[in-house]
Design a binder for these strands. Structure first.
Lengths: 153, 153
DNA sequence: CGTCGATAGATGCAAATGCATGTATACCGG
DNA sequence: CCGGTATACATGCATTTGCATCTATCGACG
């Protein structure tokens, strides 16, 4: 039996997270260095991306906030910037007087698609040589399982 | 054959990265919210952690920079803050007049151990219920393979 | 040795971020 | 309906971050 299988559950969990985190740092470094993110920050693109994937087209600010690693106030101002640059539009939520709904403008769709294409290419260039298709599917399954479990509690 | 296995390699890679990234965001959100990170920011802890794992005790600033998701100038100032608070000490590199070597002070070791204990507990509380030991080992293997591949190019 | 391009790190400055708090609306118990 | 608490978002302010640039040293080459 290897040393790995005999170590404590707590230690294994910590090493797993550490490894996931370092992989994320390594990939993110490369992605941020690419030309796709000269015109827009990664967090900003992430917001455009999330809005582009939203079925109804409109998304509440607080739902967006669960998705992004930013404080509520930072997201509020990030969206303010995107609105000022003409990439997103706001609307008061019809069913909740406190809420704000967001959607992409035409210009926002354009930018998302353009950056998205480059971004996807950059990702593939890093991930495809690293892992087989089967490994990628397994990694996808495991990270989704982890995310779902963490989100649920 | 499922839809997953018929999709393009590029798309699979992008979805894999997306899932990894979202899992990281979800876990990180929880970790940052914990009491362990009231006294010190996560990036700052990460530096203390990395120094604590360094065999020789001393580490070059530029080596540290590969490990952390921060620009060179931000890391420079982060270390300056840690030094000001008495957690790390600097020394000019003996073999390179441009370089700086860092190590933990006694107080830095204390803090790292204390935060580290809480941090590991928090991690385990999120990861252990989410994935079996075998799944964690597989996730560890895949993320390490990805990290190594990305770092190599 | 002296020059030149490259690398390590520091610093001025503008922008982004988070914390604490403010304002407005929603929800709930009486 | 009224009062109290919770939620959604905005804003003042101090801290952190990144970009551009600066200084100093390194390494290669004539």
């Amino acid at each position: 039996m290897s040393a790995k299988t005999t170590e404590s559950p707590v230690r294994l969990a910590a090493e797993t997270w550490e490894s996931l985190f370092r992989a994320q740092v390594a990939v993110m470094r490369r992605l941020q260095a690419g030309p796709a993110f000269k015109s827009i920050a990664l967090n900003e693109y992430d917001v455009l991306f999330t809005l582009s994937r939203c079925p109804s087209g409109w998304l509440r600010l607080n739902e967006l906030n669960d998705h992004v690693l930013l404080s509520q106030s930072s997201l509020s101002r990030l969206v303010e910037r995107l609105e000022k640059r003409g990439y997103v539009a706001r609307m008061p939520a019809p069913d909740d007087g406190r809420g704000v709904l967001l959607k992409l403008t035409e210009s926002g769709w354009e930018l998302q698609k353009q950056i998205g294409r480059e971004h996807v290419r950059d990702i593939a260039a890093l991930v495809v040589p690293a892992l087989t298709a089967a490994e990628q599917q397994e990694l996808l399954r495991l990270t989704e399982k982890l995310r779902a479990s963490v989100a649920a509690r």
